[in-house]
Write a protein that binds this DNA or RNA. Structure first.
Lengths: 153, 153
DNA sequence: CAGAAAGGTTGCATAACGAAACCAAATAAG
DNA sequence: CTTATTTGGTTTCGTTATGCAACCTTTCTG
């Protein structure tokens, strides 16, 4: 009765959720994007139990999303930092944030702005090669041979 | 000891995860984007237990991500369809899919293409108002007054 | 040396999950 | 009309995950 794993479903979305799809992982990543690096700071900013935080950080490190850096000062002290792979989740986190703000209202105390201009960000969208925005109705799902999938049944 | 809720953290990312952040919800949404609408089809395509699927569909309907439509044919038969709010998760799902493909390799048997041109999609990115791509290092987190957050400690 | 801080680990109670069995309504088969 | 099947669940039960508190270890601080 082990929790079903998503990495053997032949679906990259499932594979991604297997790495960052549980209750806390993406929040830890988001918090790291805000600048948090130390164990106790994650703990206080997120209100997460220590054992769960420990488990999540370990999993994120194992999956290459974060790295544990030994900063020698003041005895046993580590920093958890995002890797390139982790920073690349910025798109996902931002899309999720914007989705929530669009449909659930502004419940966040913070806002993201362009560091250069100070302006708010543009909405994250899916685009084609020409830069045109696409909805889910504008795309088709095809298999390796380019044949459209008939997957509903 | 109830599972911690994310909707009271003053964070829209947490709020979003509270709605679609568990193990199955986003996969159900993704499957719906592929065209799946009926209970048994979700069950077979995802390999999810019936009670869990039932719970997730109910939660998605309660959260306005999907609707349950009574299609009168053949007795008790319903369809679960995405709402506008649910379809708007296309950006999140696509960003997650692309992230997984970039960092974990092509493990998916299907591909997304522009319905018009047949070309693969462009990578989902965060952009500023001028359409320039931004990384997490190019943005700043500010509070309501525009002051930068010092949130690490 | 005593005390505190950082970073964990352990134990326990509760909640969620997964598989299979069971159920009810309505249609299809005979 | 009777039986079987399909659909969409609910129930039961064992396993796993989560949250909280307590404890542990190493290193700094006083």
């Amino acid at each position: 009765m082990t929790r079903k794993r998503f990495d053997e479903m032949g679906c990259s979305v499932a594979c991604a959720l297997n790495e960052v799809g549980d209750w806390w992982s993406l929040l830890v990543v988001k918090q790291a994007m805000l600048g948090t690096r130390r164990f106790v700071d994650f703990q206080h900013n997120l209100g997460i139990a220590k054992n769960i935080l420990c488990n999540r950080l370990t999993r994120l490190v194992d999956n290459g999303v974060m790295v544990r850096v030994d900063v020698g000062e003041h005895g046993k002290r580590y920093e958890y930092r995002l890797t390139d792979k982790g920073r690349d989740l910025f798109t996902v986190v931002t899309a999720l944030r914007q989705w929530s703000e669009r449909w659930n209202g502004e419940k966040d105390t913070m806002q993201l702005v362009d560091r250069q201009t100070g302006e708010p960000l543009a909405p994250v969208t899916v685009q084609n090669q020409q830069g045109q925005t696409l909805t889910v109705r504008d795309v088709r799902f095809v298999d390796e041979d380019g044949k459209p999938l008939e997957e509903a049944g």
